[in-house]
Design a binder for these strands. Structure first.
Length: 764
RNA sequence: GGGCGGUUAGCUCAGUGGUAGAGCAUUCGCUUCACACGCGAGAGGUCGUAGGUUCAAGUCCUAUACCGCCCA
């Protein structure tokens, strides 16, 4: 911080000067623009009558010999230095350069013209009080006006300019007293309600008082310009991209930064003053040497500035002060700077991010980071910002206690999308908790099956010539804690995939899906889309791995099939690795329970492997899923309980695939596949497949027929829609070939379904 | 005044120009040998409104209404 300040000061970018600053009368300190909230408050706008020096002057916005001005702060009239009008305002043109008298004290002030005056505001003319308003301060600077103050640091009226009756009055009490006096004198023309945006101290909630004071500032324009160049050059990318404009706009309209604070805590400013008030700051060569210890100043009596730095003046050093700066040759700095990604909420884009950008270039001549990911704010259940004063905060520790840390992390991640704010929703934590539980139970299922296989002697190590020994060891490893894996799960997958005779269709399917999901998740994380990544993992783990794969694997596991044991272990371990960043605790625990001692966090991240791809298995398994769903649906229709077995028959061109894997379908859906059925049948019609069931049990035929007719209408609609597209010359000419083929496929598929459905309905 | 985001199922929200999705809630069935924090089968949206672009729009463009945020 010292180095930063010295470098800025010696480079002419930090300076001490008299400026208008925001004063917090409660905290007794200055505030930066960012520490102030704007609030709309009801107040009064007063129109005041100022007498012109020459009573014969023609009328402008009032009677002859007077000018009316509008103000929301009548108590500051004693510090007035001018009346300002817009140079183009016809009403006042003849008054520019003349003089008017402040009411009550009758002091003369000039009438000036300045573009900053809004012609439409109030009565067109404003009193200019440079010491008590930032805009007035600027106008005063342009016109060389003095800036006497009439309000002290406690917010009370003070100064010889103020009539004795008002001296010492608190600013808001003074306002009332002055208005009363103005009214008595006939200087108050009118007072009407007016809503003004006023500055409120974020911390003390007190109205900020603009005062003129000598403070330390940083000249921001050159620093901001360097960042803008960097943004142009693409040194830093913001995510979401729309914040780039916000970032730029702020930098382009930046004002000098008041960095000195009158607080007891904080880093004291390394500046000293001699008895004449001259400033001494350490040299660039030896920034750590206090000036009052510096032999070259031994002849002087130096006093250190009691003020401290604004807290962000240290925070902005974070990207490099953590890496060895100011030693730019340090190992950490060389290796890690610029950092790859900064993750933070968009609400501190100006406070922190922009200042790190400026400090980065100023101190290291480089951008501090490559990517800036701005996430949304976590809001309460009603969508309001959490704040101490509102008392609507949510204690994360309570949530952790209630749902678990992993469940909470899951909730944050699942809800995060593109920098959108997040509304608190306990249901998302329940979802996370349930998911952790699901994962736990899936792992338990796996371990139980490994144990069963071991007990059945399937994992025995006798016969070292066994070509499958490596797979046996791989599964066996899950049952005992060892320091290293005999084989990594990614290698196990690749090797077992190379021996298709070991695998079932379900195994090949889940391995192929795992590969696709691994790539998808890696890509999403690279793009910093954590929400999409966790959503993909959630649905893969629950809907595909647990609901379909584990169920489909049960028959093979009953048989003690080695390839399936390997697949279960390897896929589960992969899932644990992919989930680990979001749910570190449960995944670590489960990973260790599978025989690993090494921390999951230090494992390599799973990568895609083309050899795991299996489109044929994917398509075939989709057919099995359709068959199972259709069979279950029929059982529901027939009012059968899940454990009652139903005889079903198949129809359609994909029936063969189902028959090849009949154990899976019969096991999951609890049905018996029979070659054909006697008598009338119900059917569930799917793409390429119909599942037929005998008409028995408690089925409501009318209800079923109604549904099927609706389905038939739906099929007709789909067919005619697709045919309509194919009959459209524009579509055929311009749509991509895949899309056209897809429509053709749909026509065929729906037509085939229609034929099969009609055949079944013909029985009734 | 300027800028940004949002508006999709009852609720909270995803959605990449090509057949609208999730969790919860809801209806029906199930203690099926990992899990009732569970399993299965359902029901439920003309994607704020009005135009436009396109073979094709929840998605792109314009306007507009409402909600919210930032800056002045």
């Amino acid at each position: 911080m010292r180095h930063q300040f010295v470098k800025l000061y010696q480079g002419g970018l930090a300076y001490r000067g008299e400026r208008i600053v925001n004063w917090d009368v409660a905290a007794q300190t200055t505030l930066s623009e960012l520490e102030i909230d704007r609030e709309e408050r009801k107040g009064q706008m007063s129109t005041l009558r100022y007498q012109l020096a020459d009573p014969a002057t023609p009328a402008s916005n009032g009677e002859a010999g007077e000018i009316l001005i509008a103000t929301v702060r009548p108590e500051t009239i004693f510090a007035d230095q001018a009346i300002a009008v817009h140079p183009d305002d016809e009403r006042f043109r003849h008054l520019i350069g003349l003089q008017a008298r402040i009411p009550l004290t009758k002091r003369l002030i000039p009438i000036i013209a300045d573009e900053a005056v809004e012609m439409g505001f109030g009565v067109g003319a404003l009193k200019i009080t440079p010491a008590h308003d930032p805009t007035d301060f600027e106008i005063g600077e342009r016109h060389g006006l003095a800036r006497p103050s009439v309000i002290d640091l406690n917010g009370n009226l003070t100064s010889d300019l103020v009539p004795e009756a008002f001296r010492g009055l608190e600013r808001f009490a003074a306002r009332k007293a002055v208005v009363k006096a103005l009214e008595a004198e006939g200087a108050l023309v009118e007072q009407k309600d007016h809503v003004t945006a006023i500055g409120i101290s974020e911390r003390t909630k007190v109205a900020v008082e603009p005062i003129v004071s000598t403070q330390w500032f940083v000249n921001m324009k050159p620093l901001a310009a360097r960042v803008l160049e960097g943004l142009d050059a693409g040194d830093m990318k913001l995510l979401p991209e729309r914040y780039t404009k916000v970032n730029r706009d702020w930098l382009e309209n930046i004002r000098d930064w008041n960095i000195s604070r009158q607080l007891w805590w904080g880093h004291q400013i390394p500046a000293w003053y001699d008895e004449e008030g001259k400033v001494y700051v350490p040299s660039l060569q030896n920034p750590d040497l206090d000036c009052d210890q510096d032999p070259q100043y031994a002849h002087l009596t130096l006093r250190r500035d009691p003020d401290v730095f604004d807290t962000w003046f240290s925070s902005n050093l974070w990207p490099f002060s953590t890496l060895g700066w100011p030693d730019l040759a340090s190992e950490d700095f060389q290796k890690f700077y610029p950092t790859q990604v900064l993750v933070t909420g968009y609400d501190i884009l100006f406070f922190w991010v922009a200042r790190m950008q400026m400090a980065g270039y100023a101190q290291t001549d480089r951008a501090p980071f490559e990517r800036i990911m701005l996430h949304g704010l976590y809001l309460d259940e009603k969508g309001q910002k959490m704040s101490k004063s509102k008392g609507n905060g949510i204690d994360p520790l309570e949530l952790f206690g209630q749902y678990g840390v992993d469940a909470s992390r899951f909730a944050f991640a699942f809800l995060s999308t593109g920098g959108q704010d997040i509304k608190h929703d306990p249901r998302r934590y329940e979802q996370g908790r349930n998911f952790a539980n699901k994962l736990w139970n899936a792992a338990r299922f796996a371990t139980l099956n490994f144990q069963k296989a071991d007990e059945a002697g399937l994992l025995g190590e006798s016969g070292t010539d066994d070509a499958q020994m490596v797979f046996k060891r791989y599964v066996h490893h899950a049952l005992y804690e060892r320091s290293d894996d005999p084989i990594r799960s990614r290698d196990a997958l690749a090797q077992v995939k190379a021996q298709p005779e070991l695998l079932t269709l379900a195994d090949r399917w889940i391995i192929s899906r795992l590969d696709a999901v691994t790539r998808e998740v890696s890509g999403l994380l690279d793009a910093l889309d954590i929400g999409a990544a966790i959503r993909a993992l959630y649905s893969f783990t629950w809907d595909e791995f647990c609901d379909w794969y584990i169920e489909a694997a049960k028959p093979a596991l009953q048989e003690g099939r080695l390839g399936t044991l390997v697949t279960v272990k390897a896929v589960l371990e992969h899932i644990l690795k992919l989930l680990h960043p979001v749910m570190p605790f449960v995944t670590s625990e489960l990973y260790q329970s599978l025989g690993h001692r090494r921390q999951l966090a230090v494992h390599t991240w799973p990568e895609g492997d083309d050899s795991l791809h299996d489109d044929e298995a994917t398509r075939a398994f989709e057919t099995l899923r359709a068959a199972v769903s259709a069979a279950r649906s029929l059982k529901n229709e027939l009012g059968l309980s899940p454990q009652e077995r139903l005889n079903i028959a198949l129809d359609g061109e994909k029936a063969g695939v189902v028959l090849d894997n009949r154990a899976v379908v019969e096991g999951i859906a609890r049905v018996n596949l029979v070659p054909s059925l006697e008598g009338r049948t119900l059917s569930a019609v799917e793409a390429g497949l119909s599942v037929l069931a005998p008409l028995e049990g408690t089925v409501d035929i009318a209800d079923w027929l109604g549904k099927q007719k609706k389905r038939l209408t739906e099929l007709d609609k789909q067919i005619s829609q697709a045919q309509g597209k194919l009959g459209n010359a524009g579509f055929v000419a311009r749509a991509p070939a895949e899309v056209i083929e897809e429509e053709q496929r749909r026509v065929q598929d729906f037509s085939a379904q229609k034929v099969r459905l009609e055949a079944v309905l013909a029985q009734f």
